[in-house]
Design a protein around this nucleic acid. Structure first.
Length: 447
RNA sequence: GGCGCGAUGGCGGAGUGGCUACGCAGCGGAUUGCAAAUCCGUGUACACGAGUUCGAUUCUCGUUCGCGCCUCCA
């Protein structure tokens, strides 16, 4: 069996991956809060951990891997949006959850095995809070339920923050009802006009750390193999998940923690005011999902990555070359070992891509196709990739007629006419290529 | 202040104690009516300073610069 090694944030080192039960490998990735379109940075963990999902299924068998990615459908940002639009939170969360699923599919991500929603797990959350209160790990205060951080001996293991350091920082919000400045919210009260659920502590709603602990407990169990997300989630989100789950269960929560690096755009943090804010929804209008996916895989997942439209265009050209090579080729039955080996080494996607380039260079088209498809690439037919739908202002029939007319002109050595036709097609964004088997056309690249 | 990450050729980006990464772009050539595509060829790269070593881009220490997190955030 292929040996997988993964960098475990908890240990701060690469470790051999040994699942708790190799017939039931369990992974969980923190999913979106559905209050708006996902941006390209949100897509990074989706794509890189999709590659992990594929690798685990390859090594352990599809039926032995369960991947859960949640939908956070209760949150103050969703409430704000719903309030502004004068609709219920379900309208907002359903709308953006649907778009999210569509956009991530266009990015080539497989659907997770499970996509649990926070609002469907209120009973589990209440039960976990009751247990934590009974054990002295949590307490009620003014309609809130707070987790009491000093009640957990080794709080801060993942982020390597000590409680003292946290308290020393002036940015800790010290609400008067907190017993300790580091305590965090499990449950907070809702006013009459806010969404809320009944609980032993009054009508309210959950804090955002609790849902992940409860959904994991319900769908994957008390101990799971892999929990992943963006680096920014290490603290406080994942730290607090550990606190909740390990105190509630008295057992190890997660065996391997994985965190992807941040994404910048044109060297700067993405922001609407800088004009470098890219939603996936917008990007997939103008760029092939595979080129977007590939550009996210060019860097190792733990490294920071700088996203730009130039890099998307560059990866589009790389895919062009591969697509030309695999035209009409039947995919190999087995995934190239060089690709698997690279991915098994802590998801080294740049190395896997180099292996694909090697196969392309060696004209191993069937192998290239198998390796690329394993990574969620080269999934279309070659003509669909290059032509897609006809460009604006011209039909496929007209393009084909023009190609015929140009061939006739060339046969007559009327190159002026031939070039005129080619230039005219070019003005519609249609590029001609004269190959040994005749003339073919493709759409010009963006920009 | 605390915790952590990084600095590789024009650009992107792996990796290694001594041996070509790879891709994109560029340049030269083949091919082509001309192009495009393709093929061949083409790069005194590893922030700086010490140290360890027969040998360091790779290990150690320091310096400089950049970045992330420290209860909204993938």
């Amino acid at each position: 069996m292929t040996e997988i090694s993964l960098y475990n944030t908890l240990a701060r080192e690469k470790q051999r991956f040994e699942p708790f039960d190799d017939k039931n490998v369990r992974m969980y990735v923190c999913g979106p809060t559905v209050y708006d379109y996902a941006h390209i940075g949100n897509a990074r963990p989706v794509v890189v951990f999709d590659v992990l999902f594929r690798l685990l299924r390859h090594v352990f068998g599809e039926e032995h891997v369960t991947y859960a990615r949640n939908i956070t459908d209760i949150d103050d940002k969703i409430m704000d949006r719903a309030h502004n639009e004068g609709v219920g939170i379900k309208t907002i969360s359903n709308r953006y959850a649907k778009v999210y699923a569509e956009d991530m599919a266009l990015m080539g991500a497989l659907s997770p095995s499970l996509t649990p929603r926070a609002t469907e797990h209120l009973p589990e959350m209440i039960r976990m809070m009751q247990k934590l209160i009974a054990q002295g790990n949590a307490y009620e205060a003014e309609g809130h339920v707070m987790f009491h951080v000093p009640s957990m001996e080794n709080y801060g293991r993942l982020s390597r923050h000590s409680r003292d350091e946290l308290v020393a920082g002036a940015r800790v919000d010290v609400a008067p009802f907190k017993r300790d400045p580091a305590d965090f919210v499990l449950w907070k009260p809702s006013s009459d006009d806010q969404p809320g659920w009944g609980s032993p502590w009054g009508r309210g709603r959950p804090g955002w750390h609790l849902e992940c602990s409860c959904m994991i407990e319900k769908h994957l169990g008390e101990t799971i193999d892999i929990h992943a997300g963006g680096q920014d989630l290490i603290f406080p989100h994942h730290e607090n998940e550990i606190a909740q789950s390990e105190c509630a269960h008295g057992s190890q929560f997660v065996r391997y923690w994985m965190h992807n690096g941040y994404l910048t755009v044109d060297g700067e943090k993405m922001s609407k005011s800088l004009g470098n804010f890219h939603t996936v929804h917008d990007l997939v209008q103008d760029h092939p999902g595979e080129a977007l996916r590939l550009s996210l895989l060019t860097a190792h997942y733990r490294q920071p990555i700088d996203f730009s439209l130039d890099s998307v265009a560059e990866q589009k050209r790389r895919l062009d070359r591969w697509y030309r090579l695999v035209d009409g080729v039947e995919v190999s039955k087995s995934v190239p070992p060089s690709v698997i080996a690279a991915l098994a080494d802590d998801l080294n996607t740049p190395k896997a891509l180099a292996a694909l380039d090697r196969l392309a260079h060696d004209k191993e088209a069937a192998e290239l196709k198998a390796g690329a498809q394993f990574l969620g690439l080269l999934l279309q037919g070659t003509s669909a990739w290059f032509q897609g739908e006809a460009p604006e202002g011209i039909t496929v029939g007209e393009i084909e007629d023009a190609i015929e007319a140009r061939l006739a002109a060339r046969d007559n050595k009327d190159f002026a006419e031939s070039d005129r036709i080619r230039d005219r097609l070019k003005s519609f964004g249609v590029i001609l290529e004269d190959g040994p088997s005749g003339t073919s056309w493709r759409k010009a690249d963006q920009e």
